[in-house]
Design a protein around this nucleic acid. Sequence first.
DNA 1: GTGCTGGATCGACGTCTGTCAAGGTAGATG
DNA 2: CATCTACCTTGACAGACGTCGATCCAGCAC
Lengths: 116, 116
Amino acid sequence: MSNQEQTGCCPPLAREPLSPVQAAELSKVFKALGDPVRLRLASLIASHEGGEACVCDLTDAFDLSGPTISHHLKVLREAGLITGERRGTWVYYRIRPDALRRLSAVLVLDDAGVSA
Amino acid sequence: MSNQEQTGCCPPLAREPLSPVQAAELSKVFKALGDPVRLRLASLIASHEGGEACVCDLTDAFDLSGPTISHHLKVLREAGLITGERRGTWVYYRIRPDALRRLSAVLVLDDAGVSA
DNA sequence: GTGCTGGATCGACGTCTGTCAAGGTAGATG
DNA sequence: CATCTACCTTGACAGACGTCGATCCAGCAC
């Protein structure tokens, strides 16, 4: 769906004020992580052996219906945080390391006035 | 209100699966940043000269009513991302650098299986 | 082909959330 | 005291969001 190369986005939060457009872009990604289920999904995928996890494994980790898990995975995918690939019967999801790194970089406090 | 020393929380996302409790804690903070207005507020505060910004400055940066800005500042405060202090007539907000650092650390991909 | 299983999509439902207008509180000034 | 300014709180409302059951599609086995 073309959420691939979004966000060459955004200097560190504390370096200069985000423009409205940058903030709109970035906030989508934070919002995607702003749900406990999606955070756990991201963590399960990122920390899973081999760097990828099958939906069947993920579903078992929650007391939620299949459609709900599917929905959350879609949100994470559209935020550019994960990718999904079908291999035979199963669908495997992987973290997009570049996305995490970008987010992490935005939160960094290199030097700025802030240093407590 | 006691949102001070929350979150000694949480190893990196990719190191091990977050527990439900950890995910619930952390997701609150991400959710607070998951709104374009709040992200810009945080950025304005963090990047403001002197490390603090007065509400009056913040309000001027948006086409939003005072109560709405107040509401967003409260959400950021309750997420532990900023602190507010009244000095005379004005209220000044500051970023909590420790909160940003913690978030940044959670997103880091030290070594794990993931390394693309 | 039929049937089965893993996932995704589609509606629909209840709740949460961003927004504002109106009213309230704290500090400064006269 | 009264009054003005800066900011917060309350209450209400529309739109967004998380969840589910029902349905649909893709791949495998027979």
